[in-house]
Simulated scan of single mutants.
Amino acid sequence: MSNSIMYQEDGFVVLEPDQPEQILTSQELLEKLKGILVNRQEDLPRELEKFTTVEGQAEYLMENFCDLDMGSDSYLQWYVIRLEK
């Protein structure tokens, strides 16, 4: 049986060009991704085209990928982090 700690997440570290790294909660990252995707409906990654809502696209992207190419040398990367007390 796998250790349940492998499936815990305390947040995400988010990287963007020319920006300091950010620590976001799942909900904050989801909102950030939705804000990006709402303006990119004509230029979606192929994997996201099957979803009919921006919410579904953002959730799938957040849970199954760790980056988004935004063209023109711009990108967004995110990685799950676990914080120790």
Rank of each mutant, 00 (worst) to 15 (best):
M1V: 12
M1R: 08
S2M: 07
S2W: 00
S2Y: 00
N3K: 00
N3P: 01
S4E: 02
I5S: 06
I5F: 04
I5A: 05
M6C: 05
Y7F: 06
Q8F: 05
Q8T: 02
D10M: 02
G11M: 03
G11T: 06
F12A: 07
V14C: 04
V14L: 07
V14A: 06
L15Y: 12
P17D: 11
P17N: 11
D18T: 04
D18K: 06
E21P: 08
Q22T: 07
Q22N: 10
I23L: 04
L24M: 09
L24Y: 08
L24H: 06
S26D: 11
Q27A: 10
Q27G: 07
Q27K: 13
E28C: 03
E28D: 11
E28Y: 07
E28T: 06
L30N: 04
L30Y: 01
E31K: 03
E31W: 02
K32E: 04
K32M: 04
L33G: 08
K34F: 03
K34L: 03
G35S: 11
G35R: 14
G35C: 11
V38I: 15
V38E: 15
V38W: 13
R40Y: 14
R40D: 14
R40T: 11
E42N: 13
D43A: 15
D43Y: 15
D43Q: 15
L44E: 14
L44V: 14
R46I: 14
R46W: 15
E47K: 10
E47W: 04
L48G: 15
E49S: 05
E49D: 03
E49A: 05
E49H: 03
E49G: 02
K50L: 08
K50P: 05
K50N: 08
K50Y: 07
F51V: 09
F51L: 09
T52Y: 14
T52H: 15
V54E: 12
G56D: 10
Q57M: 12
Q57R: 12
A58W: 05
E59C: 01
Y60M: 01
Y60C: 01
L61R: 00
M62N: 06
M62K: 11
M62E: 08
E63N: 03
N64F: 09
N64Q: 12
F65W: 05
C66R: 14
D67K: 14
S72G: 12
S72C: 11
S74A: 11
Y75E: 13
L76I: 10
Q77D: 13
Y79D: 10
Y79S: 12
Y79C: 09
V80F: 07
I81M: 11
I81N: 09
R82E: 00
L83N: 02
E84I: 00
E84A: 01
K85D: 05
K85W: 01
K85T: 03
K85M: 00
K85G: 04
K85V: 02
